[in-house]
Lab assay of single mutants.
Amino acid sequence: MAMNGTITTWFKDKGFGFIKDENGDNRYFHVIKVANPDLIKKDAAVTFEPTTNNKGLSAYAVKVVPL
C-alpha cells in the first residue's frame, strides 16, 4: 500500500537518501528506485511503497510529487 513522505536527506554523489514517512519513521531509498530522479531534493514530497531490507525500513517505487 502506497505511503506519503518527505525526503529528509539526499546524498546525490552516493545515490541514496532517506524519507520520513507518514508515521514519522525514516526509510532508506536508492536513486534506481525513483521514477523521476531529476526531481529529487531535500524536503520534496514523495509517494512510495514501503518495504524492509536487511538494514531496516526502506522504500521502492518512489515518485517525487512535482510542485
Score class of each variant (00 low, 15 high):
G17N: 00
D13M: 10
P66M: 12
G24L: 04
L67R: 13
T6P: 00
A45Q: 12
I7L: 02
V65M: 12
K41S: 09
A2E: 13
T8L: 09
F16N: 02
V46I: 05
H30E: 11
N26T: 14
T9F: 14
L39K: 11
T8W: 08
L67S: 13
G24C: 09
V31M: 09
F18E: 02
D13W: 09
I32C: 15
T9V: 14
K42H: 08
G17K: 02
K33M: 15
I32P: 05
T47L: 09
K63W: 13
T52M: 12
A2T: 15
D38A: 12
A35C: 15
L57V: 03
M3R: 07
N53P: 04
V31L: 09
L57Q: 05
T52W: 11
P66H: 11
A45S: 11
M1L: 12
P50L: 04
G24N: 06
V64H: 01
P50Q: 04
A59C: 13
K12V: 09
I40A: 04
F29G: 00
Y28V: 05
I7V: 08
F29R: 00
K12M: 07
Y60T: 15
A2I: 14
N26M: 15
N53C: 10
F11S: 04
I7D: 00
L67Q: 13
F18Q: 03
P50K: 04
V62E: 01
G56Y: 09
N26C: 14
P37T: 05
P50C: 05
Y28N: 04
E49G: 06
V46N: 01
F11Y: 12
I32Y: 14
T9I: 14
V31A: 08
T47W: 07
P50I: 07
G56I: 10
D38C: 13
K55V: 10
K63A: 08
V62W: 01
T52V: 12
D25A: 08
G5C: 03
G24S: 05
M1S: 15
K63Y: 13
K63I: 13
A2D: 08
V46H: 01
K12L: 07
V65T: 09
V31C: 10
P50A: 07
A59E: 02
L57N: 05
M3E: 03
F29N: 00
I32H: 15
V46E: 00
T51A: 14
R27V: 06
G24R: 03
Y60F: 12
A45N: 10
K33F: 15
D21R: 00
R27P: 00
P50Y: 03
G15W: 05
A44Y: 04
D25C: 10
K63E: 09
V65H: 11
T6A: 05
L39F: 11
T51S: 13
Y60S: 15
A59L: 04
A44G: 05
D43M: 11
N23H: 11
K42V: 15
E22Y: 06
N53T: 15
I19N: 00
F48W: 01
E49D: 06
N36C: 08
V62A: 01
N26E: 11
P66F: 12
A61L: 10
K63L: 11
A59V: 08
N53G: 13
I32S: 15
N36W: 05
K55L: 12
N4K: 14
N54M: 11
I32N: 15
F16E: 04
G24D: 05
A61S: 11
F18L: 05
T51M: 13
K12F: 07
S58G: 11
K63Q: 11
F16Q: 02
T47A: 05
F18P: 00
D13E: 11
N4H: 14
V31T: 07
M3P: 03
A61Q: 10
T47V: 12
V65S: 08
P37N: 04
V34Y: 03
A2L: 14
K14E: 07
M3Y: 06
W10I: 04
N54S: 14
T51E: 12
D38R: 11
N54I: 11
V34D: 04
K55D: 07
K14P: 06
K41D: 06
Y28P: 01
L67G: 13
K63G: 04
S58C: 11
F48T: 00
P66N: 11
I19W: 02
V31S: 07
T52S: 13
L67T: 14
F29V: 04
G17C: 02
K12R: 09
F11V: 06
K20M: 12
N53M: 08
A59I: 03
K63H: 13
L67F: 13
K14M: 09
F29W: 02
L39C: 13
D38Y: 09
N26H: 12
D13C: 11
W10N: 01
N53Q: 07
K33P: 03
N23E: 06
F18G: 01
D43H: 14
A59F: 03
V46G: 01
L67W: 12
Y28L: 05
K41P: 02
F48I: 01
D38K: 11
D43A: 09
A2Q: 14
T47S: 07
A35L: 15
I32W: 12
G15D: 05
N54P: 12
K42P: 08
Y28C: 06
T6M: 09
G17F: 02
K12C: 10
V64Y: 02
A61D: 14
N53Y: 08
I19Y: 02
T52G: 10
K42W: 06
F48G: 00
L39I: 07
K14D: 06
R27I: 05
N23Q: 08
G56R: 12
A59N: 02
K41A: 12
R27D: 00
T6W: 14
N23G: 05
F16C: 05
V62H: 00
T51H: 14
F48K: 00
Y28R: 03
F16K: 01
V46L: 02
H30G: 06
H30K: 06
T9K: 14
